[in-house]
Amino acid sequence: MTVELLLQTLLSGILFGLVYALVAIGLTLIFGVMDIVNFAHGEFLMFGMYAAFWAFALWGLDPIVTLPLTTLLLFAVGVAVYRLVIRRITDAPMLSQIFATFGLMIFFRGLAQYLWKPDFRSVDHTIVAGKVAFAGLQFGLPQVVAAGGAVLTTAAVWAFLRFTRLGAALEATAADKEAAALMGIDAQKMFALAWGIGAACAGVAGALLATYYPIFPEVGSTFILVAFVLVALGGFGSVVGAFWAGILVGIVEVMGGFLWDPAYKMVLVLSLYLIVVWFRPQGLMGKA
């Protein structure tokens, strides 16, 4: 009984941690390439969830079916946000950058509340509904699918950065904007691409979460704090770091809450963050 409970809790933590990771890799990508903290990243997630929800509510399309569309849509949103707002503040003082993305966050939340009301929505039946049960353990199928999707997406982003010319150009821009420009890489394009991919990751996360998580205008705020922790914990700009940090935080949060007192679960997560940042300021996988 107890072993089962422990195992169940551990695996639930990992499943949830993978979704955290997916939200965080978009954030860390944007930060790595541009050195801009995107406070509105949780709202990209929220838009992804709403996109999935409305496709379901209006046309009866399953969030999993519309996932590619949601991803493309969010890619476009990311690029648009870059072109309309972020491009103007690329070289602005950090405070202006913070205000700009923070302002976007408030604007997007307000917009969602205005357009779609503050109601809680949910996708009440999906093709991934159901359960996975084995050895006395059970998990919601949507959670398992979401975690699997998170792994695939992270792998795809990682492979893109590692093995494609475009990915290499993106990494080059992240490493040294001027040098990359001298090599003929258009920094503006790379920045737009980073925002597009970053938002698209949030879009994937949103579509996957929509299969089991309530959808409301403030939903991004509950995820974004953890995402920031992952970005710092994994190493600013490190996609792989954010991925492992997601799993770690998922385990610490859920197991810590179970073994100790749930009231302190975030204390554990943030203590872990403080310890890592204290001894390894560059994060687990960041370059010093």
Binding site: M1, T2, L5, Q8, T9, S12, G13, F16, Y20, S221, T222, F223, V226, E253, V254, M255, G256, G257, F258, D261, P262, A263, K265, M266
Partner: peptide, 20 residues
């Protein structure tokens, strides 16, 4: 007796404690 902080992302550990 499980007291949890509101505005969290998940309640898995809380529910596991109840279940136990």
């Amino acid at each position: 007796k499980v007291l949890y902080p509101p505005k969290g992302t998940q309640l898995t550990s809380e529910v596991q404690k109840l279940k136990a």
